[in-house]
Simulated scan of single mutants.
Amino acid sequence: MKLRFLGKNSTPGDSPTLYASDRDSYVVQGWKVYANDLLMRLDVPEGHAVVEVPTELFEHLSKDGLPSGRIKNFSDPITLVTGQGTCIVQGPEMHDPEALSQMSMPGYETCVEIPKSSLVALWEENDGPDHPRTT
């Protein structure tokens, strides 16, 4: 799988990153979610992972041709928005060696692959009211 870097929201030691793939999907790299209380609220199928990323990370979707806007409808694959301005993203955990070789990922992070259609369906370019599901 070939990846195209769209953007990242970083602070020292943290590197949530968004990529577009050549498989009509996005790869979302973020912090592994270990909080049992949160994981117990989610239905995480075998082979899937849950990552936490800043909501601003999805602003980089505009570099893939989406209109300027933001995520307005929080549902799978973006399952929750936290009170700290981050969101919880769930999807198949990335194991593709070619894709992983194109990334720099600390041990406390992982990445998930999300079909473009699933993420684009949550995107709205207008400035109507948000509908977040918060933790």
Rank of each mutant, 00 (worst) to 15 (best):
L122G: 01
R41H: 02
P77Q: 07
P12K: 15
V50K: 06
S117E: 14
R133P: 00
R41D: 13
S21I: 01
E46D: 12
E125C: 02
Q90G: 04
P97H: 13
K32Q: 15
S75G: 05
P54W: 05
T134G: 04
E52F: 04
E113S: 10
D24Y: 00
A49F: 07
P16I: 01
C87E: 01
E46R: 15
E93H: 03
K8A: 14
Q90M: 15
G13L: 04
T135K: 10
L122I: 01
A99H: 04
S118H: 15
Q84G: 08
F74K: 02
G30L: 14
E52Y: 01
D64G: 06
V50R: 05
G91D: 00
L39F: 11
G30M: 13
L119W: 09
E56A: 04
K2F: 06
L119C: 08
P12D: 08
D43I: 13
S68G: 06
S101G: 09
T86E: 12
S15M: 11
L100P: 07
F5Q: 04
D22Y: 02
R133Q: 09
G65D: 11
S101V: 01
R133E: 09
D64T: 05
L122Q: 02
C87W: 00
D130M: 07
D130K: 00
E46A: 11
P92E: 09
D64Q: 02
G13A: 07
W123Y: 14
D130E: 13
S21Y: 02
T17H: 07
H48F: 15
L61H: 09
G85H: 07
L122V: 01
D22T: 09
G13F: 05
G107W: 00
L119N: 10
V112A: 06
T82K: 02
Y19S: 06
V27S: 02
V81S: 14
G69C: 05
P45R: 14
L18Q: 10
E52K: 07
L42N: 13
M40Y: 10
S117K: 14
D43R: 13
G69H: 02
G128Y: 00
T135P: 07
L80V: 01
A35G: 02
K32P: 03
S117D: 13
V44I: 15
V50E: 10
N73F: 12
A20W: 02
S15E: 11
C111K: 08
R133D: 11
P16C: 01
Y26L: 05
L3D: 08
A35L: 12
E124I: 03
D64E: 00
E125F: 11
K2C: 02
E46F: 12
L39Y: 11
R41I: 00
N36T: 06
